[in-house]
Design a protein around this nucleic acid. Structure first.
Lengths: 239, 239
DNA sequence: CGATAGTTTGATATCCTTCAAAACCTGTGG
DNA sequence: CCACAGGTTTTGAAGGATATCAAACTATCG
């Protein structure tokens, strides 16, 4: 199974071969993009849906005084704002964090899929509920945890999410984030991120650097950061 | 127009009389509940959808050590987790903040509405995109703003949201929140909330207390808190 | 090999928390 | 109608987590 969206959705529902075929059909138009390319800009009214095939993207906002806040990371298998064409104008940006491959899906194709494949529609609905749930957990993370635990929680989440699309090898993932990116994600200073990462390194919790993250003992990282994987809803609903 | 959901949706699309009638039909079963009553509990798999008619509710999570974080406030016209029956189990709680009236909508009734009234379906989709957008703005609020601005931003938002359902009289709204609630919403201490509120009172930004909030100059409150109303998507899409 | 982005270090300032107690409400039962 | 109980708001003093500022160091890439 090469399509990362299919890999992800198969965690939520049983996909038939036809379903997988339909997803491949959806991703007929895959293009390479350079690092920093914007898929969506504030004020746009997008006409197509994007699906990340390879690489990372971030969803972010810029405040009036120039500060930036990153509100989500998109990894392979993640869709950009499936429903967003309902709105007059989007209120955020989505940019690639490195060179990436992106499938471009015309609105009509997306609608056709949703009309004809109820099982996929359900899986996509699930997937978007999980996105909401992740957003809520980020809010809790910012509101209730100190810098150390906040970072640990985020890293554990990214590791788990990448594993569900088959992108965690042994205990490592690619992590194309600078410490400034982490700072703008967690509401902290790059300086403080740096100091906390050093502390976590010394404690043997993580090895980080050079665009990669190694977590020797994921359970331990989850324990220290009060991580409860429920919010990722990886357990399939029984019915 | 008495149905607060109809009032809210009419900001997004033009509703026909039939649409409004359908919404009233949806809310046939309205019941009174006592303060503190839980509409949804973590681990539930709800069979019905709730619609707040009168009163406030909060969506919150409890961490392992007992800390609580409030992730959203629901006000009249807001639905509880329309799609949530897709999930195996919800990962949060929704409780009433005071005595309230709640419409109880069976799953089947909701589905029927969505099948038969594409315009309402579109409006509900819009409404749920706005909810997501609000959640993202809360994340930015926590990540980038200090205590004072964070509080100001939240109060301005609640004032605007209540106004769109016709519940802001002159410059006042009901605000059934304790300072501890605000603290658990904004990731601050009740003590610090208290001191900031005093400061805002002295500055003439707000009058708050006794379950009510008065904002003499909403524009000023929005200015100091870097409030950009775009994220509420109150501008109707032109098409 | 120089330029540029990213990481690391140190010293100091500040916002916010913590802890503890007093004051203030609001509803309830006697 | 008073007294009391529980929750909420307010106040003070002191400590801690994180920010700020400035600069050195390191990696990366054309």
């Amino acid at each position: 199974m090469t399509n990362p969206l299919a890999t992800k959705l198969s965690h939520y529902v049983d996909l038939s071969d036809d379903d997988v075929g339909a997803l491949d059909w959806l991703c007929a138009d895959v293009r390479p993009f350079k690092a920093g390319k914007h898929l969506i800009k504030e004020g746009d009214r997008p006409e197509v849906v994007f699906l990340l095939i390879d690489g990372w993207a971030m969803r972010y906002k810029v405040l009036r005084d120039g500060r930036r806040h990153i509100m989500a990371y998109l990894v392979p298998g993640d869709l950009c704002d499936v429903q967003v064409f309902l709105l007059k104008a989007v209120d955020h940006n989505i940019a690639l964090l490195g060179d990436a491959s992106v499938a471009i899906i015309p609105q009509a194709k997306m609608s056709a899929l949703l009309d004809e494949r109820p099982r996929l529609t359900r899986a996509l609905g699930w997937s978007s509920l999980v996105e909401d749930s992740v957003l809520r957990e980020w809010l809790v993370n910012m509101g209730q945890r100190d810098a150390h635990d906040r970072i640990a929680h985020l890293l554990a989440e990214m590791w788990l999410r990448l594993r569900t699309v088959g992108l965690a090898s042994d205990h490592s993932i690619k992590l194309p984030l600078t410490q400034a990116d982490l700072a703008d994600t967690l509401g902290l200073t790059p300086v403080h991120i740096n100091r906390m990462l050093q502390q976590m390194r010394k404690a043997g919790l993580i090895e980080i650097g050079g665009g990669a993250l190694h977590i020797p003992d994921v359970q331990r990282l989850m324990d220290v950061s009060d991580f409860d994987a429920n919010y990722l809803h990886l357990e399939r609903r029984a019915d």
